[in-house]
Design a protein around this nucleic acid. Structure first.
Ligand SMILES: [Zn+2]
Ligand SMILES: [Zn+2]
Ligand SMILES: [Zn+2]
Ligand SMILES: [Zn+2]
Lengths: 133, 133
DNA sequence: TAACGGTATGTAATAATATAACGTTTTAGA
DNA sequence: TCTAAAACGTTATATTATTACATACCGTTA
């Protein structure tokens, strides 16, 4: 079998899957990804989920929890996914990553009364986008 | 078949499922709920999911998106689930609904630069609870 | 009271999402 | 070159959620 090396710190499967997500205008679901990479030799769910897990871990993509879908990170300062916020249109499903340093700071400094120290948060806003309004 | 009436505006199945969630100290998953209500004549997934959908819609319960699990609403002013926030312990999975009017106000008034008007948000904080710290 | 429409129910089948388990290969360093 | 960690390939299975359709109930109002 042919030799493979990492590009940009991503392994072969990670890169294939990241590229697909990164060039998609909309969030992609795991099985949509699977169907789209089968021509590249990725045949089974675990291959997709492993790459997704890793890409989420290193902050190259984010999971939209309410949709079970994945988007590429657009904000360069988001290497670790510890403070994520998204706006989601309930009509056209358009999703936009919110990078607002004030919001991020406000939430990162938020302390729960019950003595819990937060390491990470995820915020999802829902509404109608400009087009759908 | 026997007569059934609504109690507290909840239908029979809705009440059975709400009571189970409400008395649970931890978030419950749909199939855990299903297994626990089979003795009460609820036999199939759609019966559970329909009740869950309705209970979420009227704000009696909330879905923890990152866990696919459901908790009863603890804050009385949360009739419609349009502004939800939770703290989630990554070790023991304990989940706590955050009712903080300042936080809620701050986020409800947050406006996206790209002209989107938000109707609803969900915020999930992750960390270690007092016990697990 | 009878008819109507909206809501809820029961049931079977299936779709969609995600993980377990196991062996092999590749990679990055010591 | 040796080794351990990471990544890979594959099969099977677990978990979460929906479709589809027929039936029953409930409140309103003709
Ligand atoms: Zn990001
Ligand atoms: Zn839209
Ligand atoms: Zn609530
Ligand atoms: Zn804990």
């Amino acid at each position: 079998m042919t030799r493979m090396h990492k590009v940009n710190n991503l392994s072969k499967n990670q890169k294939i899957i990241f590229d697909l997500i990164n060039k998609s205008p909309e969030p992609l679901k795991a099985y949509t990804i699977l169907f789209n990479v089968q021509k590249k030799g990725i045949n089974a769910p675990p291959q997709v989920y492993r790459a997704l897990d890793k890409l989420v871990e290193i902050g190259k993509i984010h999971k939209i929890e309410s949709k079970n879908a994945f988007v590429a990170c657009k904000s360069s300062d988001c290497e670790i996914s510890k403070a994520t916020a998204f706006s989601i249109c309930e009509s056209c499903e358009m999703i936009d990553e919110i990078s607002d340093s004030k919001l991020s700071k406000y939430l990162s400094n938020f302390n729960h009364k019950k003595g819990m120290k937060f390491k990470r948060f995820n915020l999802e806003f829902f509404g109608l986008c400009k087009k759908c309004k």
